[in-house]
Each structure stands twice: as C-alpha cells, then as structure tokens.
Design a protein around this nucleic acid. Structure first.
Lengths: 197, 197
DNA sequence: TTTCGACCATTTTCGTATTTTGGTCTAAAT
DNA sequence: ATTTAGACCAAAATACGAAAATGGTCGAAA
C-alpha cells in the first residue's frame, strides 16, 4: 500500500517532468516540428521511456495543450467570478481570455504561425476549448436567466445561445489573437459584445 | 468620336464577357487551379486576348472577387438601409451579409475549401472587404452618434470603434461562413451583437 | 517496475527531371 | 489602328524516386 502510493507519486512526478519538457520543446520548435526524440532528450530520458508514460505522441501533445488551455481558462474564470452581474461576468471572461491568449501567443510565437496556417491544429484546439468552455458559459447564462437578468432567453433556448456565444467568443479569439494587433480593440470589443452596439 | 464610344462599348462588353467566363471557371476549379488558358477557352478567346484587356491574372482575379464582394456588400447595404435606427441598421447589415456569404459559398464550394486552408486568399479577401466596408459602417456609426443613439462613443473614438466593429463582423463572417453550419445561430449572433448579451 | 538502445515500417524531406503556366512578341486579320 | 491568335520563353508548379527522419515496438538490462 505504501509502496503503491510511492509509485503513483513518482509516476505523477515523471509525467509532469515529461510534460514540462514537452512544453519547452513546443515553445522552441512548434507543434509540428517537435519530435519525440526532442522531448525525450529535453526531459533527459530515453525515447521509449516516454511511451511507458504516454501511449502516443498525440497523447503528450494533447496533455500539454490541455494543460495550457486549462491555465488560460481558469484565469479567465477567476476573473469572471469577480463580476457582480452575469453580464459583467461574461465581459470579464471575454476580455481576460483574449488578453491571456495574446500573452500566451507571445511565448508560443512559432505555434501562432502554425495555427494560422494549419487547419488540423485549429481544429484540435477548437475541440479542446469547446468542451471546457461550454459548461462554464452555460452556468453563467443560466445564472443570468434565473436572476431575471437575461429575460429574453428562456431555458429551452439555453443550449443554442450557449453555442452561439461560444462561437462568437471563439471567432473573437481567433481574430484578436491571430490577426489584429491592436490591444485597445480587445477591451472595446468585449464592451460592445456585452453591452451591445 | 462616334467610333471611339463604339470602341469603348465593345471594350466594356468584352471585359464583362471575360469576367463572366472567369467567374464560371472559378466556380468549377477554385481560385488557385484556374489557369489563364481555362479562362480564355471558356471565354472563347485566345489567351493573349485576355492580356489585351487585363494586365495580369491577378488583375482578372481581383476584378472577379471585387465584383462578387460588391454584390454581397450592396445587398447587405440595401437591407441595412431599411432599418429605422442605426443599431437596427448594423444588425441588418450583419445578418444579411452573413446570409449572403453562406449562399455565395454554396456556389463556390471549392473556393470555400481554398479559403479555409490558404492564408494568401484570406488575406486578399480581407483587404478587399476592408476598404469597402469601412466607409459604410463608419457612416452608420456617425449617424448614430449624431442622433444621440450612440452617446457612449465620441467622434474622436469613431475610427477605433469602426475598426473594432469591422473586426468583429469579419471574425463572425469567417466563423459562421466557414466553420459553423447552424443557420439559426446567425440571427442570434447578430441580435446579441447589436443588443448586447 | 522502469529505462534504454536497437530495430522496423511509415512519413517526411530533398534533389531533380518534367510539365504546366503566366506572360511576351510578332504577325495576321479585321 | 484595333483586335486576335499562336508560337515562344522563363519561371513556377508537379511528379517522382532515393535518402533521411520519425513514431512506435520489443527484448534485455538495471
């Protein structure tokens, strides 16, 4: 029993080591050019050791991306929760997310270029974001509906509204993250979205 | 003198013929795989005839795209002008534009796939749209400011707001035109954008 | 249980031969 | 004088096979 928890701890520790190494490699080489050998040597391990802990390159890729996305989203959520009203929460969520995204893309400049050109990568990111954002946004909306703040939405339309808002947020993320370089626009965009034009 | 106007008419006529042929070729083959020879034979002319009327392939490409974009935008403008308030105009503009865009992309299915992957094409479209949309949106906003409807914008901020709104519209165009397939979301998105969340 | 290096099948990369394509030019037709 | 066509060219795209790189496996060793 004692032994087992020890092993789990070590297992957990090594996994983290590998992930951190992968993170560094991705920052240097981007997602596509990073090889398993790169990650292994960065982690100071042999290549097949990685396969003892992760079943494929894709699994490592996924774990790293999920970790980064988790970080972005939890920061945005924290910020969102400081808002008084549901509307304010949405606005804070959007602004913080886009700001964090911009900051993130400075570190991952090569990845940024990859994202712009590679539909595969965009698709993957979209999928990972989708799941994780949907529940949170839906909660805020539901809160707003119940408090009477969003009287124009009934609960039956909730799913559709959630999807639409997530869609809007995603398209803004892509635009302001990848295309526009004017940071002032982010604040204005979030204001426009939450207050209307 | 009489001769000269005749010639101008013919010149104009042949240019239109060429453009229409090019349009058909683009629908069949997309923007990248369409060759000058394709366009020439579709128009029933020799290749160098095209060069008598247009200075390059890019010029023809540009003329066709501008024509299509003009059509999209003028439809959206017409629709926008039926709105009573400036806010309503913006909303109608967004909805109509996205609907027309969707319709357009059905005809140009291959081009749609090209747009998704090719940053070059996106960039070109963005540039062509940019110029043409900016003036119109700015006018509506200015109208709204002067009528007191957009009291939160002062005229000094107008340029920044215009850019931001155009940015939002563009990102929505890309998202709902290329990624999302749920038409219901378009109406909702436009409502959310113009009324706020 | 964990790590490693050798190994393999599949991709990716790369250099090159070949074709296609945008664009020009000259001459003919109108 | 204007308009069209076809031969022609340089540059770009493509096809292709050889060589290198890469993801993933396996048995042995620590």
């Amino acid at each position: 029993m004692v032994e087992k928890t020890m092993e789990q701890n070590k297992d957990e520790r090594v996994r983290t080591e590998i992930l951190q190494a992968a993170e560094r490699v991705f920052q240097k080489w981007g997602l596509n050019k990073a090889t398993m050998e790169d990650i292994a040597s960065e982690a100071g391990k042999g290549k097949s050791t990685l396969y003892y802990y992760y079943e494929s390159k894709d699994a490592i890729f996924d774990a790293v991306v999920r970790q980064e996305v988790d970080h972005l989203l939890s920061t945005a959520r924290e910020s969102a929760l400081t808002g008084k009203t549901a509307k304010e929460k949405i606005k804070l969520y959007i602004v913080t997310l886009m700001m964090e995204m911009k900051h993130f893309l400075v570190l991952y400049a090569i990845v940024r270029r990859e994202i712009r050109g590679d539909q595969k990568v965009i698709q993957k990111l979209r999928r990972i974001f989708q799941d994780k954002e949907e529940a949170f946004v839906k909660d805020i909306l539901l809160e707003g509906i119940r408090s009477g703040e969003f009287s124009f939405i009934n609960e039956g339309e909730l799913a559709l509204f959630t999807k639409t808002i997530i869609g809007i947020i995603h398209s803004l993320e892509l635009h302001f993250g990848l295309e526009s370089d004017d940071v002032d626009q982010i604040e204005i965009a979030a204001r426009l979205i939450s207050n209307g034009i």
